[in-house]
Amino acid sequence: MSVEDFVSRLPNDIGGAAAGPVDRVEHELEPWEKRCHALADVLDFRKLINTEEKRKGVEALGESLIGKLPYYERWIVAFANIGFTKGFFTPTELAEKMAEVEARTADHPKPL
């Protein structure tokens, strides 16, 4: 890979790359994963974050994170980052809200 490719090839552009056999894995979405998918659609419908901004936000995570984080984990991190940039909330607000959610749900399975 040339140095130009570092900036001109998106990490998720993998058509033709070497890869192992297709493992026919699938799973029933967990409730939070389905909520995350619904959130993505709603953000698009409400003209807050369109689908292409989400894709770009995932690409912005870089090759190593894209390789390690599962699917909806990538989406929610992308939404958080785009939310900071668009001024929907600040990193501090998100940190405080996450602490609140964690405290509230520590003894309960599955927040909603």
């Binding site: 130009e4 490719d5 900036v7 001109s8 090839r9 998106l10 552009d13 058509g15 033709g16 292409e52 894709r55 770009k56 690409e59």
Partner: peptide, 12 residues
């Protein structure tokens, strides 16, 4: 062309 930024045309 190989632009920086975002694209939707695979490199291949």
């Amino acid at each position: 062309r190989a632009p920086i930024g975002h694209y939707r045309v695979p490199i291949y």
